[in-house]
Design a protein around this nucleic acid. Sequence first.
DNA 1: CCGGGTAGTGTTAGCGCTCACATATGGCAC
DNA 2: GTGCCATATGTGAGCGCTAACACTACCCGG
Lengths: 336, 336
Amino acid sequence: MAVHGPAMTDVARLAGVSHQTVSRVLNGHPNVREQTRLRVRAAIAELGYRPNGAARALVTGRSQVIGVVAQNTTLYGPASLLAALEQTAAEEGFAVSVGSVRDLDYRSISAAVERHLSHRVAGIVVIAPVESAGEALERLPKDVPLVTVDGDPRRPVPLVTVDQVAGARAATQHLLDAGHRTVWHVSGPSDWFDSVGRIEGWREALLAAGVDPPPLMQGDWSAASGYRCGQLLARMPEVTAIFTANDHLALGVLRALHEFGRRVPDEISVVGFDDVPEAAYFIPPLSTVRPDFDAVARASIQLLLAQIESGTGGALRQTIAPTLVARDSVAAPPRR
Amino acid sequence: MAVHGPAMTDVARLAGVSHQTVSRVLNGHPNVREQTRLRVRAAIAELGYRPNGAARALVTGRSQVIGVVAQNTTLYGPASLLAALEQTAAEEGFAVSVGSVRDLDYRSISAAVERHLSHRVAGIVVIAPVESAGEALERLPKDVPLVTVDGDPRRPVPLVTVDQVAGARAATQHLLDAGHRTVWHVSGPSDWFDSVGRIEGWREALLAAGVDPPPLMQGDWSAASGYRCGQLLARMPEVTAIFTANDHLALGVLRALHEFGRRVPDEISVVGFDDVPEAAYFIPPLSTVRPDFDAVARASIQLLLAQIESGTGGALRQTIAPTLVARDSVAAPPRR
DNA sequence: CCGGGTAGTGTTAGCGCTCACATATGGCAC
DNA sequence: GTGCCATATGTGAGCGCTAACACTACCCGG
């Protein structure tokens, strides 16, 4: 085992050139005769030569790897984002190294970042949806390209984020447009920016319609917490419209409403957020808001590459607008 | 930007020792005086020194990185597995580099493996749940530690897998035990080993009970396909028990049954597979089979580390037994 | 007082690559 | 012919680290 493969010099010898010429061919340098290039290519193929990334990283000081710091990659949102990031990075010739993290506190994040830095990653993407992550990021070394996703909008760090506020506004407006007097909201945990943004959008839409927002029901993204909130909402006859901060919360709410015999959408309308692939098969099919994870990933990688190439640490910001997906869980409120 | 941090020699100079002594301290070599060790540690802390993984990888020929090849990391199963792998690897001091892949054919897989090899990963985990991946794996270089997860049970490659057959048998038996005469099955795509194993377990349980298996309904893991199969099953009065190859299929089936007014579990019982976190909040709460992804991840990493350390490529095999989770979607069949 | 261990440390040589520079080779103006 | 450029290729150094070995000091039994 661990038989080291052929090195650049082996290829060079076989092709009858110097190792430097091989390097030039590999890196697409222009000043190489076509015939030479072909000979080198042939030698590479014959030997099954594979460039040694570690050696290259050592001399250039940068590897072709992007580090991602994320928490809770089992949730649909983060998992989709991670997959999209990996896909996009691969298209740009970068590998993705994941450093998932139990908590998003200072210690955990810096440890994960340290691990990445020690591998000399070209840049780092931090999926930092909670408050506590923010402080950590500001104390990080400034000399490494960094992009945050779903991070704190108030911090001076390059940030790509789904426009939570707009999405929530659209969801709420959709319910108001259907004729509902007001809309209740089951939120995510209060330390998530996603959650805060969705609350804000919900509030804005209500206030713009001249409605006083009803009390907030706070969940934790899980169907279990949605179920608990749903049990309360089901017992309140005045509730006719509910916007939940994600689709799993909505699932829990739907289940509770069902148990209490409250029909959706005849008596109560529900809108979720995320558009998980199963949302169309909830009972009833769930109207929801779809964030464009691919767009987020593309924007993140672009921002990162721009930093890597230019060396500038510009605090750019990019917001991706989500789209409303209307299904069967919304209808006009029942006549009194 | 890109200001190179201090190197080992800088630490050595500050501590008044040679770089080699610093190396020894870093690698926990025994023959270093306690006092020296402390001086070196202090110097490391003072300079904020971070060892250069690339340099280490270059000289040792192995980096502290494990490559994972996976497809479709958005699905619950793969995503959970990936997260668990990353977690376990981190505990052993390894980073995880993901190479996700659009298709699991020969080209895609070898390309992903190539990328990993070129970074000189210490080992590779391939999540290879489909037939086409198998051929690719056999033609891979034999000199790199490799473990497959959910791969082909017939190939001579180290393999860790959930015991699909046992899980499906348990699910089917659970339905038979409730008094059902027979059990219908909505399967996953036929080229997935997971799917094949679950079909086999279902068949076995039925045959052991002296029942001829009814025709198979084939889906593709999605709720959409579950819905389609469910529409057929709902129209067949003789159907009283359905085992679906995963929870999302079950969701689609539940929705179809609901639409046709067939009550679950009063008229028809349903059992899923995976125990996604939301399964407890389906209507009704879904009985299902829970695979232990953490155990799979632990076994995989262990197998990989064993290969890395020993250099042996032993074709070990490890099977993780899943557990049945009984909820409300199963009851006795209706009296005729 | 010497041979021979053993703990602690230093020295040297590369790992495989890229960078900066040196060196051919050919064309073309004068 | 000489001079000078552009193109094509080679040479040497060194990135930061570890492995192998060399060296020093000291202890111990004889």
